[in-house]
Design a protein around this nucleic acid. Structure first.
Lengths: 222, 222
DNA sequence: TGTACATCAGTGAACGCGCGTTCACTGATGTAC
DNA sequence: TGTACATCAGTGAACGCGCGTTCACTGATGTAC
């Protein structure tokens, strides 16, 4: 019966950061937490103990960098927005037609949600206490909405939409719509959904009014 | 220091049901649980202990009627669907125009969600374990979707839509859209949302194609 | 060159809490004889 | 009419668990003198 310390909190691999590099641990913690949330798809699985175990540190070491677990979750949300923003931008790279760009970005939004439900739920659900959720004008979510509005406006200015309405209002409606497609698909996986991209294209086309026969205007896919 | 049994589990008011009426407690439990979930707006507040306290019984008495807490949650979800179905039907009462009926029902759906976020999250979120969530063809949610499809088809048959597409596919898209409007509003209450009914009407009009100038066809509200 | 001391990056035991669930029990009420 | 017994509607103590958080501590490393 020699030890076998199953509850040992630190992985053998890890060694402490060199002097002056203590901040590195913060990144390791966020990274590990993100790994957990992506792997499980469920932000409720995020506990201090599991995160610490994933990093290979004592549970209490998290408090060296975060005042409590909710602030750690905020850091994960920030990372989630960074990943999603990058995915959206990548998807639009090299596409010049405004309609095709808009649709590519919207598809990327939905794809991110479906492929990273843990991130997505943490970003847009009610996991975080209201005071910590991003609400300010300069929050990452608000910036994403602004760029959606820009993308819509470009379609309008190119004469590729049926009608011209306030881009911000249309973007808000489109955002809420995409959120519905994505989150319902995540939460009701057994429903016989049509392909995600078809639904996304159909919804955005109708909401934005992409009927003016641009080169990439989708017809009736749904 | 005479007692003051603050932890006494049963309210003084309650007396046991008469012989043969034991099933009544089941209703009392569901009722109390629904009260809790409506009051808090958050299904995570639902615990055996709080429910039992609300009813005025011992925690363990819940097990007389439910094998575990998840089955109790299913009963709450059933009640939620009943409340929502009734609200939708009531909202359409006396309205003959198919478009107006459709919009009234869709508004009622969103209103239910916003007014009962606890119910709504339990019904459409991922609170319930996947095996217990309603997925079958005959689930209450599936029936609601069918009636939405009917309502859309009536608009199409009356020639009140721009185009005619498969009613079930259109209903699926509309449902997901409404879910987005409602759930995002619930979960991001600080966002500067336009009025709910305006967004609902605008979204449904565009998704279903209500542009054929029926008597109640909404114009550009957003 | 040697040593005392401050700083830094963590550790580990322990806390109280609320949770779902188990199990043996209670006490009132109806029924068979 | 009386009584033993079965049934019914619950009760209450206790369980182990994982949680977030607190607090005093450790041990390596750099630095001042």
């Amino acid at each position: 019966m020699t030890s076998t310390p199953a509850a040992s909190p630190h992985r053998p691999g890890r060694r402490r950061n060199p002097r002056g590099q203590g901040e590195r641990l913060r990144e390791e913690i966020v990274e590990a937490a993100a790994t957990l949330v992506v792997a499980s798809g469920d932000a409720r699985e995020l506990t201090l103990r599991r995160i610490a175990k994933e990093v290979g540190i004592a549970t209490t070491s998290v408090y060296l960098h975060f005042p409590d677990i909710d602030h750690l979750k905020v850091a994960i949300v920030e990372r989630g927005y960074a990943v999603m923003d990058a995915a959206r931008e990548t998807s639009a790279e090299g596409i010049l037609d405004p309609v095709a760009r808009l649709l590519a970005r919207c598809r990327a939004y939905c794809r991110f949600a479906v492929e990273h439900p843990g991130y997505y739920r943490l970003m847009y659900g009610h996991e975080l206490p209201a005071g910590l959720a991003f609400n300010a004008d300069q929050s990452p979510g608000r910036r994403a909405l602004g760029s959606l509005a820009d993308s819509i406006q470009q379609c309008q200015q190119a004469g590729l939409t049926d009608h011209v309405q306030d881009p911000m209002a249309t973007a808000t409606l489109a955002w809420a719509t995409l959120h519905g497609l994505a989150s319902l698909r995540i939460d009701r996986p057994n429903f016989p959904w049509p392909p995600l991209e078809e639904m996304t294209d159909a919804a955005v086309s109708k909401i934005v009014g992409l009927g003016a026969g641009g080169p990439s205007a989708p017809s009736q896919m749904i």
